[in-house]
Design a protein around this nucleic acid. Sequence first.
DNA 1: GTAGCGCTGTGAGGCGATTCACAGTATCGC
DNA 2: GCGATACTGTGAATCGCCTCACAGCGCTAC
Lengths: 211, 211
Amino acid sequence: MVQPHAIGRLSLYRRLLTDHLNPGTQFVFSHELATMARVSPAQVRRDLMHLDSTGSPSKGYRVDELVASLGNELDHPTGQLVALVGIGNLGRALMTYFQGRRERLAITAAFDRDPEKVNRVYQGCRCHHVEELETVLKRDNIRTTILAVPAADAQRMADRLVAAGVRGLLNYAPVPLRVPNDVYVEEQDMTTALERVAYFARERRPPRRED
Amino acid sequence: MVQPHAIGRLSLYRRLLTDHLNPGTQFVFSHELATMARVSPAQVRRDLMHLDSTGSPSKGYRVDELVASLGNELDHPTGQLVALVGIGNLGRALMTYFQGRRERLAITAAFDRDPEKVNRVYQGCRCHHVEELETVLKRDNIRTTILAVPAADAQRMADRLVAAGVRGLLNYAPVPLRVPNDVYVEEQDMTTALERVAYFARERRPPRRED
DNA sequence: GTAGCGCTGTGAGGCGATTCACAGTATCGC
DNA sequence: GCGATACTGTGAATCGCCTCACAGCGCTAC
Ligand SMILES: NC(=O)c1ccc[n+]([C@@H]2O[C@H](COP(=O)([O-])OP(=O)(O)OC[C@H]3O[C@@H](n4cnc5c(N)ncnc54)[C@H](O)[C@@H]3O)[C@@H](O)[C@H]2O)c1
Ligand SMILES: NC(=O)c1ccc[n+]([C@@H]2O[C@H](COP(=O)([O-])OP(=O)(O)OC[C@H]3O[C@@H](n4cnc5c(N)ncnc54)[C@H](O)[C@@H]3O)[C@@H](O)[C@H]2O)c1
């Protein structure tokens, strides 16, 4: 019913409301959120339709109520732990970036196989040897993982993660993963992204709506 | 005519053919590429339809010919230069990752405003002060840029880049950019990506095709 | 009190992307 | 040589997401 794109926008709306609104703003209209998110007002209203928070004509949506509803939809009620596998250049950047950003979505387990990194602490999170993967994931009941290992190891690591109970994977390795279809994978393929940008920086009409 | 998703897949096909095929393989079938790319065979054939390389029944597509055609479609004939703005944790990871990966798509200009970083060399690429942005971009005729500055600076920097002639932007700052609509922007929003993965790791049926 | 305005919530329709399904064809076995 | 086979290329059908458009309504002005 609620599809990936819509969930992504809900996440964006929340961030815009909490981080990029004049502090003290009590109400927003769909067209204001739409402008910030670069989508149409109708899109915003449709996305918010299923939430329990409802807008009023003439005032719009109560910001605090909306943020709460969004949290309700997006966050695990008591908090959800995330594992990060591969503490290389990208892994460390991600660790720095995500840490402390959301109360209910924190990286609490890191893994690598490089002895240099094992047992070092990154952003308050100790790096385990990758052999402890299964133990730690099961102990902490972790179902969400960021994968930042080299391409050659990605599929094997994904298999282990899935076997250990992981149901959501954010994959930075530039190879599409094969997983059972009750596991959600999001491919974050930066090479593709850059090549696409390069392509459209040159060729043809760029595919975007007027405004 | 050729849409962003299709271009993204072409980029992926090429990478799969060059990096993940048994060396020596001379032909591939659409269903083989499809399996590697995690898409349907019909999708592969449709994507390749417009290329000048054509498949043969009973043999499939010639790999070398296909790779050449893909390069033909995706690459700038004589090479395309890319700028990277913001040499922080993420910027440095990206620099390391992209450098030397494609002959015709290389990061050749880096910018930051931190005096610590200016004039240091990262992956063979000297970091300029951001005030030299316009000069360098125009001198090298750069139209493709990766943006990895803090959210607060992203829009302003995007405006400067567009004014300096940039027509394609890969944005890592977690704020959607407002640009004229002859400029192509790709938002790489990692927070959204992680929150979406977390969401689908919990809730409902995951949205994927059988196989 | 009531008219007017401008917004929300949403059914219906439209549109782009994907899949279906098959005609056309190169190859193989005999 | 010729039938069987399995693939490509592609028109047509389908699907899912997004936008249109408007009924319903709360607020404001007077
Ligand atoms: N750096 C980037 O900006 C960037 C961009 C796009 C994609 N990627 C992809 O992300 C992945 C990581 O990139 P990176 O730049 O951080 O590489 P990196 O080489 O710096 O880091 C890889 C890390 O993974 C660890 N590792 C290797 N095999 C492992 C295994 N089997 N189990 C656990 N840990 C293992 C290594 O010890 C290392 O710490 C790669 O697949 C890369 O292609 C990176
Ligand atoms: N680190 C990550 O993994 C990650 C993940 C997702 C998104 N991001 C986003 O990417 C961006 C960069 O992240 P980071 O972790 O590298 O941050 P960072 O603070 O490490 O680096 C930012 C860099 O930009 C430079 N900078 C700041 N203002 C500038 C300006 N006006 N002109 C030129 N350079 C300027 C700073 O000197 C610094 O070197 C941020 O917007 C961040 O939200 C980062």
